[in-house]
Design a protein around this nucleic acid. Structure first.
Lengths: 335, 335
DNA sequence: TCTTCGGCTAAGAGCGCTCTCAGTGCGGGT
DNA sequence: ACCCGCACTGAGAGCGCTCTTAGCCGAAGA
């Protein structure tokens, strides 16, 4: 724990360049100095291998250049089954890298991590927070907005705290998918819905119901949790409920793949006997058997936009409080 | 950028509690003080909602409580196709959370990010670095070890710089899988290998060759890149090379799934005509058709051990320079 | 009762940086 | 030749915390 072996400081660079600390600081931060000073300073910086100390800078600027991405999912689900989070992380990372900010990943599985996150934020450890995939009325948005730190959510938060968010057109995407099924002549269109305490689950079901209402068909719903396994169970239930079901809209590709497997096991041909449409358009969708018709949501772009909005907020600029990205029906062979 | 609206400091807590800054600091850091002081301080902390400022603490302790996880993969691949990284992130996160450290995620896709990472590390922005999935002779380990920061890799780095790492028994796992195929009476056992600039790709192929050499069979190899799509192409090639192939060992579950799809499309029954074994045991393996026999590697545990080793290093303790976690053959229906 | 010792506490000196505020030198206007 | 203004520079004061160094006070020993 001794002092780091003489890491060069502003002071030493200044001494070597024969100028004051302030001048070195100006060069480092890109402010105007005379060419001769600048040359001397740059030379000294190179020779010494000087790198500014983050903590010292943060202490005075009150800025950490750290952005937190909070994933308040159960750790089991996050990062294990689908490819939504990885995609978002990727998008966020791209934008932050350009802005020279760092990404702090907070997986908030247990309730205790909520306290930890709040504390970390209160300690001014990060400049802003990205909240992904909130469940139900999570208290975190409320807590954070009270602390007064910039926050951007993925999807409209369910609680009462209004926060800027970047979402996708879940309702429209789902409705389009179901109308495609209906237009194709299907008469008994069921759905495998997502969790009903998440916007994605709720709104995609709403889109299904809306499209069905338009054509006066009777809904048939089984609820899953976006995972493949839950798609398997849900499809079994749907088959039991109505053996004559001829189409299924699943609120995630993983659940759609589960449905496909169950249908195959039950001897139904897809799309001949039963048509299947998914939601997400993850890589898997191209490789299912048959390849999956699905509603694409721009996952990477969600991450990018969330990060972009947050950086604006951090910079003190105003942002569009709500932003809805389009979805698009990708036609393959399953429907 | 005016001063944050009166966030309480050590000073204000001290004033309110009627003690000195040093005493408050002792309470916050859990050092011995008299009960009466402690009560007064705790009361003041609660009333003021005091939270210590990280930057200030870091400045003096030279410790950031930040651990970087570097994923020097092409961003397209990381986080999009398989579930290895998510699992590792999860494991790392669990350990760090307990140690009250934060995880900084660095996706190093472009060469420019290498420079950024090196700079960030040199600026003492993080206490230690976890390097995952190095490709070929990546210069990053060398750079980091010269800076003199604690580093732990996942898998033995291919370059010349010796660094502590946490790996799995790739050779043994692959050999076990292939021997299982041989024992089951298969005579023409091919393999879909992983990228040959990564330890996982290299060692699993070595295991395959080792097992085959023992039984004097002729190897048949197609190389993929761990993704489902590459498994599809590789299987097609294998089928073209030897139409009588009766078993395949794939170096990842995703490639195994690709092989299954290709085999089905080619009209081969699994396991009757061709047996398939994968590697990883990701969630998907339970749901393939038929369910996949595979070599399980303890992904979460890799993350946990990497983090644990790194924290030791950061704390100045010694660690086992190399650590190899066991793999295990999980029997399902595909072989 | 006086001394000694040990456990706490207060004060102060930084950690490395930014930023304000004078100050310096130079050119141009009169 | 004088003054004003401009552009840049240097000194110094912190940012909020930790840690060392004295100093204080009460209890135990003589």
């Amino acid at each position: 724990m001794s002092r780091a072996a003489g890491r060069p400081t502003l002071e030493s660079v200044a001494a070597r360049a024969g100028v004051s600390r302030a001048t070195v600081s100006r060069v480092v931060n890109g402010m105007a100095v005379t060419a001769s000073s600048e040359d001397a300073v740059r030379k000294a910086i190179d020779e010494l291998g000087y790198v500014p100390n983050y903590a010292a800078r943060t202490l005075v600027t009150q800025r950490t250049d750290l952005i937190a991405l909070v994933l308040p999912e159960t750790t089991a689900r996050v990062f294990s089954d689908d490819q939504f989070f990885p995609g978002v992380v990727n998008g966020v990372s791209q934008v932050l890298e350009q802005a020279d900010k760092q990404l702090v990943l907070l997986l908030a599985g247990s309730p205790s991590s909520h306290a930890r996150i709040a504390r970390s934020v209160a300690a001014h450890h990060v400049d802003g927070v990205l909240l992904a995939s909130l469940h139900g009325a999570d208290p975190l948005p409320e807590t954070l907005s009270r602390i007064g730190i910039p926050v951007v959510c993925n999807e409209r938060p369910l609680g009462s705290t209004p926060l800027p968010y970047v979402g996708v057109d879940n309702v429209g995407g789902a409705a389009t998918a179901v109308r495609h099924l209906l237009t194709g002549g299907r008469t008994r269109v069921a759905t495998i819905a997502g969790p009903q305490d998440m916007i994605g689950g709720i709104d995609r079901l709403a889109g299904y119901q809306e499209a069905l209402r338009d054509s006066a068909r009777r809904p048939s719903v089984a609820v899953g949790d976006f995972t493949l396994g839950s798609g398997v169970s849900a499809m079994r239930q749907l088959l039991a409920d109505d053996p004559d079901v001829d189409a299924v809209f699943a609120a995630s590709d993983l659940m759609a793949e589960g449905a496909l497997k169950t249908l195959r096991a039950a001897g139904r041909r897809v799309p001949d006997d039963v048509a299947v449409v998914g939601f997400d358009d993850i890589a898997l969708a191209q490789y299912t058997d048959p390849p999956l018709t699905t509603v694409r949501q721009p996952i990477l772009e969600i991450g990018r936009q969330m990060a972009t909005q947050l950086l604006r907020l951090v910079a003190g600029e105003d942002v569009e409080p709500t932003m809805t990205l389009p979805t698009e029906l990708v036609l393959r062979q399953s429907a």
